[in-house]
Design a protein around this nucleic acid. Structure first.
Lengths: 110, 110
DNA sequence: TTGTTTTATTGCAATATTACGATTAATTAA
DNA sequence: TTAATTAATCGTAATATTGCAATAAAACAA
């Protein structure tokens, strides 16, 4: 993050930014959409669905796991990924709460 | 974005990622919160409020303007920033729409 | 055991981001 | 006009991200 210390900002600000950052790459959005679409666990089909190399997908999956948006279940040699329901709902709340800070004022200065 | 072409992903995926990316830095969240808190236009006080140098703030403001979340109005030597209401609402919809793709299924595979 | 399959990790190159000092540009004030 | 004020831009260093080939690790199959 350059030279900026996270202590400069509130925990809330850091959390929102961290979540947004993880969602800030189309490949990760595509991965999430695949998992959402499947409505179930999805294994390595992600590599064939999305046009990126296996290590790249693996890296993106790792970041999504770190933020908690998905979880992976080992099933033999395969790993099945699905949405972490609780965390997903929490992230939804955090983002919605932030966007709703806009109090619809009649302010028309710009 | 590394070597990945945006053509690999849908327009929707790119748009969500682009929005999230801009929100993916605590300084930009802090800037947005300052403007939101003011409930009005806010001029260059941002530099003193947030502990970053003026060129850095200016750069963050530029990115926020590029995504359309804020707009700046020149007022003499100063520039006043405020939320772009229409775009804000649009971004809120896009994010909410994405997060709501989670169909609360009873699926419990993980 | 030896292969096979699948995913994670390592190492590295290319690119992007972030921060800031120095400077510029634009407007206002004296 | 000349300062002063404010914000944008330029240039650059430090750091972070992204992507992938090569490799490792783990579980299964024969």
């Amino acid at each position: 993050m350059g030279l900026t210390k996270s202590e400069m900002f509130t925990e809330e600000q850091n959390e929102i930014a961290q979540i947004a950052k993880v969602m800030g790459h189309p490949a990760r959005i595509a991965i999430l959409e695949q998992i959402l679409k499947a409505e179930s666990c999805i294994c390595g089909d992600l590599v064939s669905e999305i046009g990126l190399a296996q290590p790249t997908i693996s890296q993106h999956l790792k970041e999504l796991k770190n933020t908690g948006l998905i979880k992976g279940d080992i099933d033999g040699t395969r790993v099945c990924y699905c949405i972490n329901e609780e965390r997903w709902e929490q992230v939804r709340s955090i983002l919605l709460n932030f966007m709703d800070k806009r109090t619809k004022s009649t302010n028309e200065c710009c």
